[in-house]
């Protein structure tokens, strides 16, 4: 465990120092800071628009950071040959992979925490949120986004065990798109009574297999108030279990692939 944590800590330190990530983060933070100015452009619905914009900025920035952060994790180590130094020590490959992943997720978490804190501070200063219940309702969304991005990072780490960064970027981006765009579509197909059973079967399989990033998009009730949420605790518990299970699948598969890879 100590080995994993040591690698995670090093990875986190590296990630925080990477300029490209800091630039993306800075852009996101800047957008968040100036977002309240947009309310002047939208006197009607200003609060709804403001929340939609700020949460959208956090999600979009986090998705880019998650992919950019993780596509280079393994290939960079191989390219710079630092992996030889690490693996020549009593470090197993699976420990290396998990350590890298945890470090990346830690860095992602820190960046998202920073963005969320800025968003809440801006809202509090501008008096756009009142009371702990409203703050909690807003803060829940970036938390769900963090789990979503952790899953996206796991997808990217899995691909990074065998694909180059550029290929990985498009693969991870593609899976993210499919998982958000087409999941409901496949669900609709799988329940369509007029479709060929074979097509329905395929749609069901794809719906179940592809990571469903859409399920982490929980921002709507935070943006539009007055919505009644049923079994929220159960939903978040299920979401956590689902994410943990899927991340485990990807990391185990990544470990197996990485074990056989020549470096």
């Amino acid at each position: 465990m100590g080995v994993i944590l040591a690698i995670a800590k090093t990875t986190l330190g590296e990630a925080v120092r990477r300029r490209v990530l800091l630039v993306i983060l800075l852009v996101g933070v800047l957008f968040l800071a100036i977002a309240p100015a947009l309310e002047a452009l939208s006197p009607r619905q200003e609060l709804t628009v403001l929340r939609a914009l700020t949460l959208g900025i956090i999600q979009l920035t986090s998705a880019v950071i998650a992919v950019v952060l993780t596509v280079y994790l393994i290939p960079n180590e191989i390219e710079r040959r630092t992996i030889y130094t690490i693996l020549s020590k009593p470090v197993r490959r699976w420990q290396f992979l998990i350590g890298k992943y945890l470090g990346a997720v830690g860095a992602l978490g820190l960046m998202m925490l920073l963005m969320t804190t800025i968003m809440l501070l801006v809202f509090l200063i501008m008096r756009k949120v009142e009371g702990t219940a409203e703050i909690a309702s807003l803060a829940k969304v970036p938390f769900a986004f963090f789990i979503q991005m952790s899953l996206l990072a796991a997808v990217s780490v899995f691909f990074s065990t065998f694909a180059s960064p550029i290929v990985n970027f498009f693969l991870s981006g593609g899976v993210y798109l499919v998982g958000t765009v087409f999941d409901s579509f496949f669900d609709v197909l799988s329940k369509n009574s007029q479709l060929n059973p074979a097509v329905k079967g395929m749609a069901s399989i794809v719906h179940v297999i592809v990571p469903n990033f859409q399920s982490f998009n929980v921002q709507n009730p935070a943006i539009n108030q007055l919505q009644f949420i049923q079994s929220e605790g159960m939903f978040y518990l299920g979401l956590g279990v689902y994410a943990f299970t899927y991340i485990s699948i990807l990391l185990i598969a990544g470990i197996v692939v990485f074990e056989y890879r020549e470096v």
Binding site: N212, Q214, S215, N220, Q230, S231, E232, M234, F235
Partner: peptide, 10 residues
Amino acid sequence: VVFPLWKKNY
């Protein structure tokens, strides 16, 4: 659990 509740709530 997840998908039915997500469809209903979000």
